[in-house]
Each structure stands twice: as C-alpha cells, then as structure tokens.
Computed example of a mutant assay.
Amino acid sequence: MDSYWNHNVAFHDLLVADVKKRGGRVLDIGCGEGLLIQRLMPFATHVVGIDPDEEAITRAQKRLGQTSNVTLINKDFLTLPVPDQDERFDTITCVATLHHMELRTALLKMRKFLAPGGRLLIVGLSANKTILDFLISGLLVIPIRLMDRLHGGVKHVGVKIASPKESLSEIRQVTCEVLPNAKIQRRFYYRYLLIWDQEMEN
C-alpha cells in the first residue's frame, strides 16, 4: 500500500510543513507502517521511527527500503533510555499513539527527548465523558462522513488500535502540569492537536 487516507493521515500535511520549516532530527513515536516517515524524511537530516508492533515495523522497512537518513526501532517508547544531549530531537511527532501509553509518563519522557528549542507535535484521541464531548462528537458525525466519502473512504492499514481513556479536559490538565504553555486544540476527525516548544537553554 503506497499511499492511503484516513483520519490520521489527514494531519500529515500539517506535520510535514512544520518539519520542513525546522529540519533537523525527527522522532516519530508510533510510526506504524511508515507513511508519515516517508513524507518527513526529505526535510529532515535524520528520522527515527519507533513502534512496538513488529509487523508494523516490518512493513515500514519494506516501504522505506535502505534509506540512509531513517532508523526504525521495534520497541516500546517508554522503555528507551533518554538520549545524550547531542542525540535529542528537534521535532517529535506522535499521531494516534499517546492514548496507548500512560499519559503523564509518556509526556514526561517525550519532554526529555526534545532538544532545546525542539517542538512536540501530538495528534491525539480523547474519550467522550462530558455532555460537551458527546455533543461535539454528535455534531461532527455527518460532516466527517461526507469528508470520508470525498476522500474515497477511510483506509484501515492493519495497525493496532485502542480506545482513549482520558477526556480532552483530563488531557489538558495533565499537559498543563507537565508541559507548561502547551497549546491543545480540538480538531476535526475526532482528534486534538497538542503543540509544545522546549525552551532554549540559557
């Protein structure tokens, strides 16, 4: 499967545009079968993709081939040692993966992997728990179905899925404590976008 579209891929252009401006080293957490990496690698000096799913990494290897500026790791991100300062990342992307991990632990670790001045970009899913959550999701059903049909339908690419546990309000609370001044926006396709910039060192 060379290319496809789904509710996660819908955010790829945004992520690629950011990396294109920033360049440098990129870490893609939960890289799956590598489509985002394929789109990021022309604009980065090096891209590291990590995913605990062995089958997904095998498919990513087939997609990306022997690309000189890409490294794929078949491990759980939370088990990785924190890299040395000169091996940290200018950008970290994480698409539909954060809800597979313990929220606070994962955000804290991502923070440690960012280089000074680096940016964290998370496209995430949240659970519907409040009346507002359910209302917004209900109002989006028809527009999203129309967009799905416009794009030829949602493609399921055989990666592992899980239901989100935290509401957007709960995610905002933990993020505020762990990543001061992070921006979280509710977005289309039942997703949210989290952006956080690591401060430069004095």
Score class of each variant (00 low, 15 high):
residue 114 L to T: 05
residue 85 Q to N: 09
residue 87 E to S: 12
residue 101 M to H: 02
residue 122 I to V: 15
residue 85 Q to T: 09
residue 101 M to G: 01
residue 111 R to V: 03
residue 108 L to N: 14
residue 94 C to F: 10
residue 106 A to T: 05
residue 95 V to W: 13
residue 73 I to R: 03
residue 116 P to C: 07
residue 80 L to K: 08
residue 102 E to F: 00
residue 72 L to F: 08
residue 92 I to K: 04
residue 103 L to Q: 10
residue 91 T to V: 15
residue 103 L to C: 13
residue 110 M to P: 02
residue 88 R to N: 05
residue 100 H to Y: 06
residue 100 H to L: 12
residue 80 L to V: 14
residue 107 L to A: 06
residue 98 L to C: 09
residue 119 R to E: 07
residue 98 L to A: 13
residue 73 I to M: 02
residue 71 T to M: 02
residue 87 E to A: 11
residue 94 C to S: 15
residue 75 K to S: 12
residue 93 T to L: 10
residue 114 L to S: 04
residue 98 L to H: 02
residue 103 L to Y: 02
residue 84 D to F: 13
residue 92 I to T: 07
residue 69 N to M: 04
residue 121 L to K: 02
residue 97 T to I: 11
residue 112 K to H: 12
residue 100 H to R: 12
residue 113 F to A: 01
residue 78 L to Y: 01
residue 105 T to R: 14
residue 98 L to V: 15
residue 72 L to D: 00
residue 79 T to R: 09
residue 99 H to S: 12
residue 102 E to T: 10
residue 104 R to K: 15
residue 102 E to P: 07
residue 86 D to C: 07
residue 75 K to W: 04
residue 91 T to P: 00
residue 68 S to T: 08
residue 110 M to Y: 04
residue 100 H to I: 10
residue 69 N to T: 07
residue 119 R to T: 11
residue 110 M to E: 06
residue 89 F to I: 11
residue 94 C to K: 08
residue 90 D to I: 09
residue 100 H to W: 06
residue 75 K to L: 09
residue 99 H to K: 13
residue 68 S to K: 13
residue 115 A to V: 01
residue 86 D to M: 12
